[in-house]
Design a protein around this nucleic acid. Structure first.
Length: 394
DNA sequence: TCTGGGGTCCTAGGACCC
DNA sequence: TCTGGGGTCCTAGGACCC
């Protein structure tokens, strides 16, 4: 029995790196992807040149612009990134059947069963990294370990562009400051420090039960997890407005737009939603959510709307302030084959028909009446043919 | 001149049932 | 009409990740 071997790979400054690859004049310059300098939003990816000015992802764009006034700002071309991401994962799957996609630019690969490809696991890891770099044209960092956690930590230490093999995992983890552990954020770290605990070994010695909890699932050998993954528990869409809005008609309209998008995605993925949630963020950044169970599982825009509208109304009663964000989420998703055949309702069929048109001609080819009001205020980009239905105007 | 958008997972309290 | 204790479902919120 070969020892377990997990490889973690992470594309360096992914979105910024793609933009640089497509526009070599940007190479080496501070580049910020996520939005324009004056916009309401945050940095999605900063190139290494921009990071030298203290810019990092999650930072407000306006703050980034202050720190690095001569940086180039780009909104981001996410369809492009998605295509490169797919090539990245396809490449990894040539080396192992067990690949876990953690995000667009990050994956775990189980090399435990792929030793036949190469006797040295380190050399195998180097081959995987080189192949992925060739395939994407981008620089990738990689870490090899006996566990997921070990691989991830090794990758972190290998940045940018390196490959490290973490050999003494228990020793390394014992000496690790706990805020470096994935899953331990600022809040948890603050509490741990209050308990007089900063490093792995202190936690293990003083609070063994807590230690097991913090490391559970990440520190099992190989790719094993404590629990098998469930399929997609939720889908959501949300929008931060360029300017705060209190006009109820406009807010309803935007909610309709978000639900419309969710309905299309549910239909495309063959899923039925069991619950709907609405989120409101007020101008003072206070955020509230309201959820409600749907009377029956559905992918129909109309039923989502019926469930969601009272929730938005309740949220608007919460505060007098205008909203900076409205969001919608569907949860409790089930596949059609797991449901009793009681959903051949008229509205479901209507949604299916509309969905088919959208699939073929683009999302904006048909819009529901409620979201049209919004469209007059914020025109959306249209893909392909436009079929504006006459009866849908407000 | 603050503070995105997509997720996952967990906790806690109340309702309700036995 | 001294009240108890589980179990489960439901909703709200928050920590965390990329």
């Amino acid at each position: 029995m070969k020892p377990p071997a997990v490889l973690h790979l992470d594309i360096d400054a992914f979105f910024a790196a793609v933009e640089e690859a497509l526009e070599p004049a940007l190479r080496g310059k501070p580049l910020i992807v996520g939005g324009l300098a004056h916009e309401r939003g945050v940095v999605c990816t900063a190139s290494y040149a921009a990071r030298r000015y203290g810019v990092h992802s999650g930072m407000a764009l306006r703050t980034a612009a202050r720190k690095c006034p001569h940086a180039v700002f780009r909104r981001g071309r996410y369809h492009l990134y998605r295509r490169i991401s797919e090539r990245f994962f396809a490449c990894l799957r040539r080396f192992s059947p067990r690949v876990e996609e953690m995000s667009v630019d990050e994956a775990y690969v189980d090399l435990g069963g792929s030793r036949y490809l190469c006797p040295s696991v380190y050399e195998l890891a180097a081959r995987v990294k080189a192949a992925a770099e060739r395939e994407t044209g981008l620089r990738i960092s990689a870490g090899l370990g006996r566990t997921r956690l070990g691989a991830k930590l090794a990758c972190e230490a290998a940045k940018p562009g390196g490959l490290l093999w973490l050999l003494d995992e228990p020793e390394f983890v014992a000496g690790l400051t706990l805020d470096k552990v994935p899953g331990v954020g600022p809040q948890t770290f603050f509490v741990l420090q209050g308990l007089g605990v900063r490093r792995g070994r202190e936690l293990q010695a003083k609070y063994p039960a807590l230690w097991r909890k913090v490391f559970a699932g990440q520190y099992a050998g190989g790719m094993e997890r404590e629990r098998p993954e469930a399929a997609h528990p939720s889908l959501s869409r949300e929008t931060t407005f360029p300017h705060d809005i209190r006009d109820e008609g406009l807010l309803h309209s935007h909610l309709a737009y978000l639900l419309d998008r969710l309905a299309v995605q549910l239909l495309r993925d063959g899923l039925y939603a069991g619950r709907v949630e609405v989120k409101a963020r007020f101008s003072d950044f206070s955020t509230f959510t309201r959820r409600a169970a749907l009377p029956f599982p559905t992918y129909s825009y109309f039923h989502l709307w019926q469930g969601a509208l009272p929730l938005l109304r309740a949220l608007l009663r919460e505060r007098e302030l205008p909203l900076r964000l409205v969001g919608a989420k569907v949860e409790g998703l089930q596949e059609a084959r797991d449901l009793l055949p009681f959903f051949s309702l008229k509205d479901e069929k209507m949604t299916a028909a509309i969905g088919a048109v959208k699939e073929r001609f683009g999302f904006s080819s048909l819009r529901n009446g409620r979201s049209m009001l919004l469209e007059e205020m914020y025109p959306v980009e249209r893909e392909g043919m436009v079929l504006k239905t006459a009866s849908l105007t407000k």
